[in-house]
Design a protein around this nucleic acid. Structure first.
Lengths: 111, 111
DNA sequence: CATGATACCTAATTCTGTTAGGCATAAGAC
DNA sequence: GTCTTATGCCTAACAGAATTAGGTATCATG
């Protein structure tokens, strides 16, 4: 997923949901670029992970899609459904909780 | 691994190394208990994950072992090798860096 | 006209963790 | 006294998510 390592595992859905929450309607390639920017190049999403994840979230009813023609190319936009908005919030909260717990376990200052 | 979810993936080695660094010589079961205490019950290491991880770290030369008889039972103590100490430090630093990056990506205050 | 960026996708493999066992001693409850 | 719980080690089958490595196609630039 990136050159930072396997720590990302399990965070991909959270990242995708939060990007969509903050940015609204976004397409796959754009998500990879935004994450790259926000992480200053340290998180490079692979498409092999991203697209299946988007499809999974859509299948779970958290995302809805819209296809738009850009010239002769199809661009597929994703946006959060109402359930998706709730889930985005929950996932971020869960991540914050996880970080706090890890701070205790690793005995480091994170928050 | 716990009821908090798959966020733990990829953090197990870091946790084990840091516990051994802070506590010194520790045995497997004791590690599960310490992590449980430090995490206030929210991280429950499963043995199916822990023991293979300990064996892996030992095979990589990061841990050394010592068997001690406690009554009629064998207890297997693990401790960091010099390489293990370096690795523990690096892993924790890497985790902190990961958290900072995630803070940017998720646009939340973590530190 | 060739390369790199844009843009979507899937399949095989790998890696880690979960689930679900097995084995055995020690301690406490009833 | 025996039954359950805790202590303590282990492995194997399975599951899930990401990596690696493809495929396809349009568009812009040198």
């Amino acid at each position: 997923m990136t050159h930072s390592p396997e720590l990302l595992k399990g965070t991909l859905q959270t990242i995708v949901l939060k990007i969509l929450k903050d940015h609204g309607r976004t397409y796959g390639y754009e998500i990879t670029q935004r994450v790259k920017e926000l992480s200053e190049g340290s998180i490079l999403l692979t498409e092999g992970a991203l697209y299946p994840t988007l499809h999974r979230l859509e299948a779970e009813g958290l995302l809805k899609t819209e296809k738009v023609m850009i010239g002769k190319r199809v661009r597929k936009y994703y946006a959060l459904t109402p359930d998706g908005k709730i889930e985005a919030k929950d996932r971020v909260a869960e991540f914050i909780g996880f970080i706090k717990t890890m701070g205790h376990v690793l005995q480091v200052e994170l928050a």
